[in-house]
C-alpha cells in the first residue's frame, strides 16, 4: 500500500498524519487519504482539483510533473510526499 506523507509545516494548519492508503495512481492514493481526512483536501488541491500552484508532490523522490490528471502510477511500496514549493516563498 502506498504511503502518503506531508511536510510538517502543514500540520500547523490541519492534522495530516502519515498513513498507508490504497490506490494505484497518485490521484487514487490522495483520494484515499482525503476520504479518511477530508479537511486536508483543500490544502493540497485547488477548487478545480489541481495540485495547488505552490505545492509540490514527490513520488519515490521524483517530483510530479503533471498537476492536473494525477494519473502517474504508484506501487505497493511507493511514498507520496506532499511538500511546499519554494516558489511560494
Amino acid at each position: 500500500m502506498p504511503t502518503v506523507e506531508f511536510t510538517r509545516n502543514l500540520a500547523r494548519h490541519v492534522a495530516c498524519p502519515t498513513e498507508d492508503v490504497g490506490g494505484d495512481t497518485v490521484g487514487a492514493a490522495l483520494e484515499a487519504y482525503f476520504a479518511r481526512h477530508p479537511a486536508v483536501r483543500s490544502y493540497v488541491l485547488d477548487e478545480q482539483g489541481r495540485v495547488r500552484h505552490h505545492v509540490t508532490v514527490f513520488v519515490d523522490g521524483r517530483q510530479l510533473r503533471d498537476r492536473g490528471r494525477l494519473d502517474e502510477a504508484v506501487g505497493e511500496r511507493s511514498v507520496v510526499a506532499v511538500m511546499q514549493a519554494l516558489s511560494g516563498g
Binding site: 509545516n9 502543514l10 494548519h13 490541519v14 479537511a39 483543500s42 490544502y43 493540497v44 485547488d46 495547488r52 505552490h54 505545492v55 511546499q84 514549493a85 511560494g88 516563498g89
Partner: peptide, 23 residues
Amino acid sequence: LGHWGVKLRRSRDNGATWVDLPA
C-alpha cells in the same frame, strides 16, 4: 495561507478557538 490556499475560519468564542469552514 500562501502554499495552502485561501481558507475561512469562524470563532464563536471571541477568537479563542476557530473552526475551518469551506472557503
